[in-house]
């Protein structure tokens, strides 16, 4: 464990070298989100609610989803692609350490600073829309909300590993991971609450793991689901963690075999 902590520490120091970039990213994010929210206000117009979501609920939803996306997202797929293509993976394989674990903890290392900046950015957005932003201070809800975000983070990381490991078989994954990212955004409810979409879409989204990374935590926060549904959702999240863990481990093992050139 100590070795991975040490790795994460080096990662933090390494990102701090570029800390001035963070400010620009933050500003960019702020403006994007503002515009996005103004568009939704136009869409609402005089309407009171869309699919059961009032305007304040939608505004809060979109701010929350934006923040969660940033907290859980990681540069893992691009990293893995680079490591495999440039042969840097070899540097890890000849050392007594686990590559996936190293990359996972390494991705956590960038989080504290990143999360801090995002919280500031989204707090500013919320301040701009203060008459529409719903503040929920119920302790139970907040705890469940946080737990669901932790599972989101793990599910998202495991999905990222699976996407990244595709590089073992293809020359470039950037096209694929771009498509994956878009699908992920839509099916996780990143652009709009999933109930806004047609029935078939909602069913598909329910079967896929993505909605459990962003939509589900925000439903908890907005009290859109009952306690029973919340517990059930957390259970499904755990199930997805297990399934995706096994899947990514399987893909990793096959990939390394290919990297080693075992009978292929």
């Amino acid at each position: 464990m100590r070795k991975y902590v040490a790795w994460a520490k080096a990662g933090i120091k390494s990102t701090l070298v570029y800390s001035s970039d963070f400010f620009l990213w933050g500003l960019n994010e702020f403006l994007d989100t503002l515009i996005f929210l103004f568009i939704w206000m136009i869409i609402y117009g005089e309407r009171n609610s869309i699919a059961g979501f009032s305007l304040p609920e939608t505004v809060t939803y979109l701010i929350g989803v934006g923040l969660i996306s940033n907290i859980i997202s990681s540069p893992i797929p691009e990293r893995i692609e680079k490591d495999i293509q440039e042969g840097k993976l070899s540097n890890f394989l000849v050392k007594p350490m686990s590559y996936p674990r190293t990359r996972f903890f390494g991705s956590l290392s960038g989080k504290p600073l990143n999360v801090l900046i995002r919280i500031i950015v989204y707090a500013l957005v919320a301040a701009v829309f203060r008459d529409k932003f719903i503040i929920n201070l119920d302790a139970t809800i907040l705890v469940l909300f946080l737990i669901s975000i932790i599972f989101s983070l793990i599910i998202n990381a495991l999905l990222d590993f699976c996407t990244g490991f595709i590089s073992f078989w293809t020359i470039t994954t950037s096209g694929f991971s771009g498509l994956a990212r878009t699908l992920k955004s839509i099916f996780s409810g990143g652009y709009a609450p999933i109930v806004f979409f047609p029935r078939w879409f909602q069913i598909t989204a329910g079967i896929l793991p993505f909605s459990y990374t962003r939509y589900f935590p925000m439903l908890i926060y907005l009290r859109k689901i009952s306690m029973m549904e919340t517990i059930r959702g957390l259970g499904i999240q755990i199930l997805w963690v297990a399934i995706l863990y096994l899947l990514s481990r399987f893909v990793w093992r096959r990939g390394v075999k290919r990297y080693e050139g075992v009978g292929i």
Binding site: V5, A6, A10, K13, G87, K88, S90, N91, K95, P96
Partner: peptide, 27 residues
């Protein structure tokens, strides 16, 4: 294994950081 063309040093950090990291990795 040292490969002349593949570096293991952390590019953005002083070499000392990689040394400390390797100390942990190899215990």
């Amino acid at each position: 294994l040292v490969m002349g063309q593949k570096n293991q040093l952390w590019w953005d950090l002083p070499a000392m950081e990689t040394f400390i990291l390797n100390k942990e990795i190899y215990e």
